[in-house]
């Protein structure tokens, strides 16, 4: 299971990094989303992988899952959700104002400042 989880995190992060480096806003937003998925799984794994263990105290539990990473992931999910919503709105605004979806706002011509 450790190998599977770590391969999963690695693939998600690699795809996220690749997409973030693209020149159009939509792949960049997708990349940020994949990166946040990757990091959420990673945070989960920092509490060590356990199966079928309770996170809260119970009398007949043989062991416990670490509850703190679960709380961290919850916080991280909420924040990345809000940030994704924001960056999508910003990309749409940039598309409307700059006339194209290139991250620098100019499709072909040189930047004129």
């Amino acid at each position: 299971m450790e190998a599977l989880i770590s391969i999963l995190i690695g693939v998600l992060t690699a795809c996220g990094v690749y997409l973030v480096l693209r020149a159009r806003t939509f792949p960049v937003v997708m990349g940020l989303t994949l990166l946040s998925y990757g990091v959420n799984l990673f945070l989960f794994a920092t509490g060590r992988l356990t199966i079928g263990q309770p996170a809260v105290i119970s009398a007949q539990a043989p062991g416990y899952a670490d509850p703190l990473p679960q709380a961290l992931v919850l916080t991280a999910i909420v924040i990345s959700f809000a940030m994704t919503a924001f960056v999508i709105m910003l990309s749409l605004k940039a598309r409307a104002e700059l006339g194209n979806d290139h991250v620098d706002g100019h499709a072909d011509e040189e930047e004129h400042s």
Partner: peptide, 26 residues
């Protein structure tokens, strides 16, 4: 808007790195 987009994306990647770092230390 253009400067804002760069700023936001750079900082979102930074936030992801922060989570990786905090997770590793934890």
């Amino acid at each position: 808007t253009r400067a804002g987009l760069h700023f936001v994306v750079v900082n979102l990647v930074g936030s992801t790195l922060f989570l990786f770092a905090a997770g590793t230390l934890y």
